[in-house]
Each structure stands twice: as structure tokens, then as C-alpha cells.
Design a protein around this nucleic acid. Structure first.
Lengths: 199, 199
DNA sequence: TGTACATCAGTGAACGCGCGTTCACTGATGTAC
DNA sequence: TGTACATCAGTGAACGCGCGTTCACTGATGTAC
């Protein structure tokens, strides 16, 4: 791979990185494939060889984001302590990710702009969920077994954490992101403390 | 107001209704001012006399939506029962609104597309919050007194309900809206049961 | 009650913009023999 | 080892589209006298 080569060599990854930049800078509303190609130093028609369309690119980016989220949740789970403490640590990590990667986090839940049937996206999303779900950790059980009542606790914790994350980045806890995150983190810890049955 | 009149007579409201339709049909991503004007039977430049731009129209629509949400929450709160039961009833109403008015609900949290400083929007949003906050119901206390620790419980309940709503419409509880809503409602009731201190 | 006139709320044609996409092409790479 | 050729991964010009917005205009309404 040479910088001056006609062939880029790693355009797929370069486009994903450029897309992250554009997303961070312009927000989801201002995102465009043309701008992304331009940032990657390539013409507007080049991306076609790697992603069928904008949806495909955003879907791949979203899968990558879910992978990062899963990694951060897994790292947080390594904390020493009780099950309750590990769950709280994961919640904080989730919240931190949502604030730090705001636009990316928003993208991850925009069904409109993603191909929800994409295998890689499904895989990474379910991996993140499986990390959250301490009950089945390490397990390769399929995600979302609707009939399984044991899923309830995980869904509930997920909803709580997700609700705090969403309201935080949306500004409902104040417009200063750092302060809002601090407020949300404190409340989240307390709420999870109520919920988690630390047997 | 005559149907054939040169002057519409109530174009502002007609545009808001048309915008709702467009939003419901095309989603937030496919929304446009031109299409809205067309549905209202008016040329593309007519809306300028009532809303400065698309953001202004969407902001007004969002304020209207918060008003509806507040009304539905208030109605749900009229249920006979304990404080805990009233809180659960509000949670169900919140969830129901989010599913029934999906695109509108999504719009309400899109900071990108709204003028968050708009007085009417702020007013209706804080009214909805005040209904949720049973502690200050009927009170005209200002919203979001950050230093007030008594706010914590309300924020927490709000986050839980909001998290369930968001994950429900996003499809995390399954792709069938009715089933997803049923699942979320059941889990939500249980979660609020844990949280609410029914003294 | 009638008239003059200002203001308000629309029309409709036109403009420029950035977008995704197409198409014929070309340079670089990989492979068969 | 060298050559021919297929395939891959780009270029760059062009296209049509829907968008928000502008501008000069006009019909309807409201008001002063």
C-alpha cells in the first residue's frame, strides 16, 4: 500500500474512518457519502466497490461501533467486586460510551438508516447484549429468546441504562455534557442498586 | 374560511397536520417542507409566512406532541389506586404514546432538527415532565432544578420508562410492535414496582 | 355607507445546491502457462 | 523468467432529483376617514 498508488490498498477501512469523522463533525443529519469519499481522498464513485450504498456503509460502521461498545462493556466487567458492582460498572461504561461517541451512538439506533438484517451488525449487537447479560456470559445462546422469562432482568437493566444514556445526550439532564453525565451516573448507580438482586 | 378562497384561513394548523402525516408516512428521514406544503394544498413558499423554516415547523409540531403526551400522562394519572399504581399507569401511557406516534416521538428527541430554545417547546416539554413528577404535580416550580436531590426519583423513573420506550420502537424487544409493547409493558411495571417507594 | 389604501397571505416561476448514481475509461494487480 | 490476459479498484465527467429559498406578483382582508 503506497500513498501515491492508484489503488488505495485499504479503502474500505479508510472510508469507515472517514465516515466516523464526518459523523462526529456534521452529525447524522449532515452525513453524506460524497463528503466521506472526499475525506478519504477518493472520488465519489469509489465507495461503490466496497459498500453498495450509504446504508451499507453506515451499517458497517454501526457494526464496528457495537463491537467497540461490547469491548468497553467487557472491560468494565473485569472490575473486582460483587455482581452488583460489575453491573454498575457496565452501566457507567455504557453511559460513557454514549456521551463520548454521541453521533455514533445515535446512529446505532436509527433503524431508518441501517440494514437491520445485516449479519455482521446482528452479530456485534448481540455480542454487546450478551456482555450486558451476565447470566449467559460466555454462552453462545441465541439472542432474544422471547419466551424466556429469565431474559426479563437483562432487558430491564438494559432499558434503564439506555434510558439514562439517551436522556443524557439529548440534554434532559442539562446542556453541559460532563455535568449531565455525572448526574446520570449517580442516579443510574442508585437505580441499578434497587434493581439488582445481589444474591 | 372558504375552501376555494385565495387565503387559506388556517394554514398554520393545516401545515402542522400535513407535517404529521408526512412524518408518519415517510419517517423523519424522508420529511420535507415541500411535501408538507403540497399536502396542505399550498405552494412551497407559503409556509414561510407561518414558520421561518423547516426547523421552525418541526419545533412547533414537537411542542404540540409534548402537549399531547402531557395530556395522556395526566389522563393516565387519574386512575384509582395507590401512588405506585398511578406511576405505573403513567409509564404505560408513555410507552403507548411512543409506539402509537412513533415518528413523532422520535422527532421529539432529535435535538438536531429542533430549536431547543423555543419557548413553546420548552413550556410543553416541562409540562409533560411536571406531570411525570408526581412530587410537584400542580406546582409551577421551574423544571430541572439541578441541585435538588428530590429530583432524582423523577429522573430515574423517567429514564426507565424512556429506555423501555426507545428500545421498544427501535425493535430490540422484537419486530412485532404489539408484542414488543406487551413485553415492555410487563417488564416496565415490574421495574417501577422495584423502584417506587410506596409509602 | 363608501372609498382609498395599507397590510397580509398567498402564487408560481426560477435558482443554485449537494446529493446519490451512471458510465465509459484506465491503471495496477494477480494468474496461467 | 517472461508474457498475455483477466480481474480488480480506482477516475472523472455527467445526469437527474428534490430540496430550501428568492422574488416579483396578486388577490383578499382590514382599517381610516
Amino acid at each position: 500500500m503506497s500513498a501515491t498508488s492508484y489503488h488505495h490498498g485499504d479503502l474500505r477501512n479508510a472510508l469507515l474512518e472517514a465516515a466516523r469523522d464526518v459523523l462526529e463533525e456534521k452529525g447524522l443529519l449532515g452525513f453524506s457519502l460524497r463528503e466521506t469519499a472526499k475525506r478519504a481522498g477518493v472520488t465519489a464513485s469509489a465507495p461503490k466497490h466496497h459498500f453498495t450504498d450509504t446504508r451499507g456503509l453506515l451499517t458497517a460502521l454501526s457494526a464496528l461501533a457495537f463491537r467497540e461498545l461490547a469491548d468497553e462493556l467487557a472491560a468494565a466487567d473485569q472490575v473486582d467486586g460483587s455482581r452488583a458492582e460489575r453491573i454498575v460498572a457496565q452501566g457507567r461504561a455504557y453511559l460513557s460510551f454514549s456521551v463520548r461517541r454521541r453521533s455514533l451512538f445515535e446512529l446505532m439506533w436509527q433503524a431508518d438508516r441501517l440494514d437491520l438484517a445485516d449479519p455482521e451488525l446482528l452479530e456485534q449487537k448481540s455480542r454487546a447484549f450478551r456482555v450486558l447479560d451476565d447470566r449467559v456470559r460466555g454462552d453462545s445462546a441465541p439472542l432474544l429468546d422471547d419466551g424466556d422469562p429469565r431474559m426479563a432482568a437483562t432487558f430491564t437493566r438494559w432499558s434503564i441504562v439506555h434510558g439514562f444514556a439517551h436522556l443524557t445526550i439529548e440534554g434532559s439532564f442539562g446542556t453541559d455534557p460532563t455535568a449531565a453525565q455525572a448526574t446520570a451516573t449517580a442516579l443510574l448507580s442508585a437505580a441499578l442498586g434497587f434493581i439488582v438482586d445481589d444474591a
